[in-house]
Simulated assay, not measured.
Amino acid sequence: MSNLVTTQKNGSLAKSDRYADFPSWSNWIDRMFNADLPSIMMSNYNTGMTLPKVNIRETADAFYVDMAVPGMKKEDFTIDLDNEVLSISSEKNTENEHVEDNHIRQEFGYASFKRTFSLPEYIEESKIKATYKDGILSVHLPKKEEAKQKPPRTITIS
């Protein structure tokens, strides 16, 4: 076997790895566990709810946490505040009955998520509000008066 010498991007010389064509142990393990399972094993498998997408935006007066959670009701959410940590969670159990070929088939489901956010100390905690409309949960986090952005001003030189 030959030892090839190649030039790297930075201009230095490097020997090629003669075992480069063989997969590493970790790659082999990853490939084994990431392989698609047969559909018969997955047919009744419910993975639950995925972690909702969140947008955080800031205005001069407040922060807004907007979470995309379509198909839910406002009663499905729990919003807690503890030591400047905002937690938004949901836990939902479902049970459905279907009649197929004169047999009653029951389906059970469980879905949950929890997102937490560390808040800055200048949030007016007593004025935090939340609304749910059209699949978007929006939490309004107003800033304390001293933290609100002031408009720019020009200072005259005396």
Score class of each variant (00 low, 15 high):
1 M>W: 04
2 S>D: 15
3 N>L: 03
5 V>R: 12
10 N>T: 08
10 N>D: 14
11 G>N: 09
13 L>V: 08
13 L>C: 02
15 K>M: 10
17 D>N: 08
17 D>P: 03
18 R>F: 00
20 A>H: 07
21 D>Y: 01
21 D>M: 08
23 P>A: 14
23 P>K: 13
24 S>F: 03
25 W>K: 10
28 W>S: 08
30 D>L: 10
32 M>F: 03
32 M>V: 11
33 F>E: 14
35 A>N: 09
39 S>H: 11
41 M>F: 12
41 M>T: 15
42 M>P: 01
43 S>G: 02
47 T>G: 06
52 P>A: 01
53 K>D: 15
55 N>V: 12
56 I>K: 06
56 I>M: 05
56 I>W: 05
59 T>P: 01
60 A>K: 14
64 Y>N: 06
65 V>K: 01
65 V>G: 01
66 D>F: 00
67 M>W: 05
67 M>S: 04
68 A>V: 06
68 A>M: 04
69 V>S: 06
75 E>R: 09
76 D>A: 08
76 D>K: 02
76 D>V: 02
77 F>S: 03
78 T>M: 02
78 T>S: 05
81 L>D: 11
83 N>R: 08
85 V>E: 11
86 L>Q: 05
87 S>F: 03
87 S>T: 13
89 S>P: 11
89 S>H: 09
89 S>T: 10
89 S>I: 05
89 S>F: 07
89 S>W: 08
90 S>L: 06
92 K>V: 12
94 T>M: 03
94 T>K: 02
98 H>S: 13
99 V>N: 01
99 V>F: 00
103 H>G: 00
104 I>S: 09
110 Y>I: 00
110 Y>S: 02
112 S>A: 13
114 K>H: 07
118 S>N: 10
120 P>R: 07
123 I>T: 13
124 E>W: 04
124 E>L: 09
126 S>T: 07
126 S>F: 00
128 I>H: 09
129 K>W: 06
130 A>M: 05
131 T>R: 09
131 T>W: 02
132 Y>K: 03
134 D>W: 03
137 L>M: 10
137 L>E: 12
138 S>Y: 02
139 V>N: 05
139 V>F: 02
140 H>Q: 13
142 P>N: 04
144 K>I: 07
145 E>N: 10
148 K>A: 01
150 K>S: 08
152 P>R: 10
152 P>I: 11
155 I>W: 08
